[in-house]
């Protein structure tokens, strides 16, 4: 019984977290996170860990494991293809270093959409 109620609590927390809009966790004002915020946050997308963003002055101390984000519209004219790459890039390349952000629920579907928009704008 105790087990059941704790499962319910976990469920309630998970539902509450996934139902509402994407909020900044440690920001009391409840500001919605932009695609850029999610991409840069090292607890969220942490894209800068591997990708540089040459045209964004805030994108400092970026890694160089993966290609820089430039001319993304030309490189990924098909939005669905870019989204699939972020959702699970092992599909296109089994040896990739990139975490499967959708498949492993590192980001929510909504967060991935925001990141796709941001990355495509670069």
């Amino acid at each position: 019984m105790k087990n059941k109620s704790s499962i319910l609590t976990v469920l309630a927390v998970v539902l509450a977290a996934s139902a509402g809009p994407v909020m900044a966790a440690d920001d009391g004002k409840g500001k919605e996170l932009s695609g850029r915020d999610i991409a840069f946050d090292n607890k969220k997308g942490n894209c800068l860990s591997c990708h540089a963003v040459p045209n964004d002055p805030k994108a400092v101390a970026a890694g160089n494991i993966a290609p820089p984000f430039i001319m993304m519209k030309e490189r990924y004219p098909d939005r669905a293809k870019l989204r699939a790459q972020i959702w699970d890039s092992t599909q296109a390349n089994p040896k990739t270093a990139m975490p499967p952000f959708g498949k492993h629920r590192i980001l929510s579907e909504q967060e991935i959409d925001l990141v796709v928009d941001f990355v495509q704008s670069l």
Binding site: S49, C50, A61, G63, N64, P99, H104
Partner: peptide
Amino acid sequence: GQLNFSCAICHVDNAGKFTRS
């Protein structure tokens, strides 16, 4: 792990590269 890394992805395939700084 959730981030889906092996030791080798970083230290064999990408040795010498940077993750952040």
